[in-house]
Design a protein around this nucleic acid. Structure first.
Lengths: 335, 335
DNA sequence: TTGTAAGCGTTATCAT
DNA sequence: ATGATAACGCTTACAA
């Protein structure tokens, strides 16, 4: 069956401690002994027992990625898959394992918190897509659990890495302004999320910097789903906007549907700009002008930072904002 | 700090064993004592230490989901996200944790196998998208690790759950035949994968049952990517097929691009049928006729079966095939 | 450089 | 019904 340190030690004619030293690359082992021990390890296929090890080291080499289940419903939106890939790649490279946790209701969340974190199953967690009032954050702070948020968070004590949502949104709207639009609507993300708020803030800044007053009738809150955005756009149409900034590509697709269903043309009647630069942006007709954000990189950096926190190579809370970039295609009519 | 059994025992004025019995709902604890112990547990926020527990129980309550990294590149294809959701939901419901593992090269795979499985970090694994000659399968069999494949596998000893790829493909092609097509091409999935082979087999069966000889020039192997399918379709065009069965929706989108780029019309010049019924199928122009497969359900069932295997409530190897369904839209020209 | 032995926090066996 | 006590497999002082 599964061999233990003890067995390897016996076979190599040394003590458990020596085998442990070899496994953990400690110095102070005679090269000759080290070699002999490694041979036995290979021969019997010895692998340290993870639980036994972490019982004494207090480390599991497992990181958690926590995502609200509701958002995952939007798995037609590859935001999370891409984020996960960034996270997973760093985990693999740094020899950590990745545990995925979705939760729907607060009850499930608390249960998850107990089972995964209080039970010391995880060395740390990455949070993404959490609403601003997510109870997880105070819990984590109080328990002193290493954690990083993929997304801005208005508390200096939390380490986060986000993309420049404000700047990106601002660029998008400024582009529409340059094209002569003055009646620019927006479909926001959920305003319970920082990303939703920030993209709206960028919209605001762009308009105000041109001295254009905000018009509440041109601002409708969306929910990051295509269908939600379709409905939102339908509500916007009577206001006769000449352009609309939509806070995600997936929602932009929904908005475009609503516009076409109303018999209007994109971009001639209404220009559309999205946010994300997901693959669909270049596939849709007309191709979507959008703001590119480095999702995978955000996941990767969040993971690097979390590992730094866990291993103690990063000390205080850090705040990183990654740049975004405007990708101009046909849907805004500048081509 | 984190409290232990010992501390709870002291505070409740009982022994460790009693607290352990309470935690694990063993009988033979006086209701009064049980109540007193629970109170202390709540008060100090005690949570059993996962590693300590699994060191003695030989159970971690963690399941692994293993996916080749290469396929994940296609994260614009929501197949895996949807599968993951099915898996994750059952995990949550059954109080298991889910560990996600991607690997690219065989070396990484072996390293992963050692770190995650031989180290007893996982109670079992779900495999998906693995090629037929994946070395993981023999390893798992030999080590007697509980595992389930989401996908058919030609070895009676392995438990799997798959969708009816053969039947679905056959339905799709039979539909094209009914519409009068005789020169039907196909872009297959990678033939290293069972799903690729099975969908090709369905194509074969449909044609042969009508007495139409197979024509190798009409069969091109794809790789489940949009771009790969675009190229494949370009190679197919000179053969003048009147219809093409494409083994995935994502590939179908690529094929449609190639067809349009050649100045041809869908479905009038070439009818297209896909496979998956992903969200994009109904969004694309014209809407894609395709074969719907219950991806999420497959993930969920695979997980249920794995848990059954782990907990010993399922004995022998099981083989389940879930039904598929033809969804007729405009791209095949029958509307 | 190597070995001995004490824990890590549980569960489980066996008395009581 | 409850309590000692021995594992589980490892790391890590401390000794030698």
């Amino acid at each position: 069956m599964a061999s233990t340190l003890e067995e390897v030690a016996r076979l190599a004619g040394v003590s458990r401690s020596t085998v442990s030293r070899v496994i953990n690359n400690h110095p102070n082992v005679r090269p000759e002994v080290r070699k002999r021990v490694w041979e036995v390890i290979q021969r019997v296929g010895y692998q340290p027992h993870a639980a036994a090890r972490s019982l004494v080291t207090n480390r599991t080499q497992v990181l958690g990625l926590v995502i609200p289940r509701g958002l995952v419903t939007l798995f037609s939106d590859p935001f999370f898959p891409i984020l996960i890939r960034g996270v997973a790649d760093v985990c693999t490279a740094r020899r950590y394992h990745l545990m995925l946790s979705f939760f729907s209701d607060p009850l499930q969340q608390e249960e998850l918190y107990r089972r995964a974190l209080r039970s010391r199953l995880l060395d740390g967690v990455i949070l993404s897509g959490a609403p601003l009032d997510d109870p997880l954050v105070p819990w984590l702070l109080q328990d002193n659990t290493p954690f990083v948020i993929a997304g801005r968070y208005p508390d200096e004590r939390v380490t986060y890495v986000d993309v420049d949502n404000i700047g990106g949104a601002r660029m998008a709207v400024e582009h529409l302004l340059r094209l002569g639009h003055r009646r620019i609507a927006t479909i926001t993300g959920p305003l319970t999320m920082m990303a939703g708020q920030d993209r709206l803030e960028g919209y605001r800044q762009a308009l105000l910097s041109r001295g254009i007053p905000l018009n509440d009738a041109l601002i409708v809150e969306g929910d990051f789903t295509e269908e939600g955005a379709r409905v939102a756009m339908q509500r916007l149409l009577p206001q006769r906007p000449t352009a609309v900034f939509v806070a995600s590509d997936t929602m932009a697709v929904g908005a475009m549907k609503a516009i076409r269903e109303a018999g209007l043309h994109i971009p001639d009647d209404i220009a559309v700009v999205g946010f994300d630069d997901l693959p669909i942006a270049s596939v849709v007709e007309p191709p979507l002008t959008t703001v590119r954000q480095p999702i995978e990189r955000m996941g990767a950096m969040a993971t690097e930072m979390l590992i730094g926190l866990v291993e103690g190579t990063i000390t205080g809370p850090q705040h990183i904002i990654l740049p975004t970039q405007l990708i101009v295609r046909a849907s805004c009519g500048s081509l």
